[in-house]
Design a protein around this nucleic acid. Sequence first.
DNA 1: AAACAGTTCAACCGCGTCTGG
DNA 2: GCCAGACGCGGTTGAACTGTT
Length: 269
Amino acid sequence: MGFKPSQKPTKKHKKGLWSPEEDQRLKDYIIQHGIGCWSSVPLNAGLQRNGKSCRLRWINYLRPGLKRGMFSSQEEEMILTLHQTLGNKWSLIAKHLPGRTDNEIKNYWHSYLKKRSEKSEDNKLAINISNTEEIDSFMNQTTKTSKIELDFHERTEAEQVQEQEHESILPRLVFADWLPNNYSGMQNNSLCFTAAEKQQGDFMVDFGYNEGGSSSSIDKFSQEIVGDVVMQKSMLDLPLGSSNNFMDFSAVDGVYSSGFFMSNSGIYS
DNA sequence: AAACAGTTCAACCGCGTCTGG
DNA sequence: GCCAGACGCGGTTGAACTGTT
């Protein structure tokens, strides 16, 4: 007889919180094999979970580049504004907040922003704002500072198709701190830099502008993709988060380079 | 210190959509 | 066109945590 992995009769799948060991298994598996068919992941990775659970764990917790910690006030405003425009389209909203997951945003909305939004709705009714200039000014400010696209529904179909093809042009995040020790630079068509490397001053020069003289792995990477990517120095200058060593960077036109492809959901070779 | 209430957030569930045979 | 399996999304749940009495 024999079943394909995905057709296997359902064993009792484990539920509930993930243990560090399970996380490690999943990470290891995805590092080695990339994201493919989720239903076969638990079997191949030796996990007693279903594929759906693995996918969720990866997307919401293990995926490279996730931000941890409090939402900034800018992020809050962004969520509120986008929610007014898009409604409960958490995945769409999440696309405008790099490093945040739809689940995280949804939770934050229900636990905090919803109340705040309701409050401000009440205030609006009371104050009855009539000065559209003020509103425009706020919207412009939000747009400028966050690159957010408030006219999501108004963009042409061609523009939306273009964006889908290139995914988001918003910052992408490179993973580092959960890869094996001493892992850096290009390796197996994947890409990773450590926090220590980020802190080296010439790293930014080498990486961003390809002016460095050393023949490091960073240089190699720089040479690989510098034609497609323009680094935002301001982002590289951001202080490191306390809980992870991810680095933020922004690609002007997505990252499509020989050998690998990066998106908000991961890095693919 | 204990009990209870409120909050947070990881994870599950169910449904709609997509895709390949 | 139909069907089954996989995927993605939004709603919901419940355990863990925190604050209050």
